[in-house]
Amino acid sequence: GLEHMADEEKLPPGWEKRMSRSSGRVYYFNHITNASQWERPSG
């Protein structure tokens, strides 16, 4: 619920959580730099 939404908002600017269609794993994508990574971004 609300706790999940608050957790999402802690991601650094530009980052969003996405799911890989090929593997079904969650990864993180930065739409500003077009960077993507499996680890949760910090800072």
Rank of each mutant, 00 (worst) to 15 (best):
G43N: 12
E8N: 10
F29S: 01
I32Y: 12
P41S: 01
P41I: 02
V26N: 04
A6N: 11
E8I: 09
G14K: 01
R25A: 06
L11P: 15
Y27E: 02
S22E: 14
L11M: 06
D7Q: 10
Y28P: 00
K17I: 07
S42L: 10
H31F: 14
A35D: 06
G24N: 09
K17V: 09
T33Y: 06
N34S: 09
S42M: 10
G14W: 05
M5Y: 10
M5T: 11
S22A: 11
S36E: 06
Y27R: 01
V26D: 04
P13W: 12
G43K: 10
S36M: 15
L11G: 00
Y28T: 01
G14A: 04
G43E: 10
A35Y: 10
S36G: 04
S23Q: 10
M5F: 11
P13V: 08
W15M: 00
P13H: 09
G43T: 11
M19G: 04
G14N: 06
E9I: 07
S23K: 07
A6E: 13
E16F: 03
Q37M: 06
A35H: 14
G43Y: 10
W15Y: 03
Y28R: 00
N30W: 00
N34E: 05
N34Y: 11
R25T: 05
W38M: 05
R21T: 15
H4P: 13
E39Q: 10
F29D: 00
E39L: 08
S23R: 04
Y28I: 00
G14Q: 04
N30G: 01
D7Y: 09
I32H: 09
S42R: 11
Q37T: 06
G24H: 08
E9R: 06
E16M: 04
L2H: 13
E39W: 09
S23E: 12
N34L: 12
E16R: 04
I32M: 09
V26I: 12
S22L: 14
A35P: 01
E3G: 12
E8D: 14
W15L: 00
R18V: 06
L2C: 06
I32E: 08
R21I: 15
G24T: 05
E9A: 09
L11R: 01
T33N: 06
E9L: 07
Y28N: 00
P41M: 02
G24D: 05
N30V: 02
G43H: 11
L11C: 02
G14T: 01
R21L: 15
P12I: 01
E8G: 09
P41A: 02
S42E: 09
R21N: 15
P12Q: 02
S22K: 15
H31P: 06
P41N: 00
S23D: 09
S42Y: 09
W15E: 00
D7P: 10
A35I: 15
E16H: 06
Y27M: 01
E16A: 04
R18Y: 06
K10C: 14
T33G: 02
R21H: 15
L2G: 14
E8F: 06
Y28G: 00
M5K: 09
S42D: 09
H4F: 11
S36T: 14
S23T: 14
G43A: 13
F29Y: 14
E8P: 09
W38G: 03
N34T: 06
E16G: 03
S22D: 14
K17S: 05
H31R: 11
D7S: 10
Q37E: 02
N30S: 05
R21V: 15
E8L: 09
N34I: 05
S36W: 15
N34H: 14
R18I: 05
A6D: 13
D7W: 10
Q37H: 03
V26G: 02
R18A: 03
A6M: 10
W38P: 05
Y28Q: 00
A35G: 05
P12K: 01
E3W: 05
D7A: 09
S36H: 09
H4I: 12
G14P: 08
E16Y: 04
M19I: 15
M19D: 05
Y27I: 02
G14D: 05
F29R: 04
F29K: 03
M19V: 15
W38L: 07
N30A: 01
K10G: 11
P13R: 07
R25I: 05
L2V: 12
K10A: 15
P13F: 12
S36F: 14
E3M: 10
G1K: 12
E8S: 10
P41G: 02
G1H: 11
L2D: 13
